[in-house]
């Protein structure tokens, strides 16, 4: 894994995820396009998804209104970053 800029939005999202979801990984071990859910990726589940919605609101003021919207946003770190940027923060 290459060194990441710790100030990058992607890196900050990963730090929040590790903290809030009690992940064992380091930010460097999570790829920006790694799927969050399912056995091919980080292996998160529906409880993690709920936590992530709360965590993104708390840390990035990103409001995800419903489950449909969550499906699109919570695909990987990049899609979360795009949603945060779109929300103008």
């Amino acid at each position: 894994m290459s060194e990441e800029n710790p100030d990058s939005l992607q890196h900050r999202i990963k730090s929040v995820m590790i903290d809030e979801l009690m992940l064992q990984e380091t930010p460097e071990e999570i790829a920006d396009d790694e799927p969050l859910f399912g056995p091919e990726g980080l292996g998160l589940d529906s409880v993690d998804a709920l936590q992530l919605v709360v965590a993104l609101e708390k840390n990035f003021s990103l409001k995800i209104p419903d489950a449909e919207a969550a499906k699109g946003v919570l695909t990987n770190v990049n899609t979360i970053a795009e949603a945060i940027e779109r929300s103008g923060r």
Binding site: E20, L21, M22, V47, D48, L50, Q51, V54, E57, K58
Partner: peptide, 10 residues
């Protein structure tokens, strides 16, 4: 309550 952690409750 809106920001209470769903991950903790179970």
């Amino acid at each position: 309550p809106a920001l209470a952690s769903p991950i903790l409750f179970p």
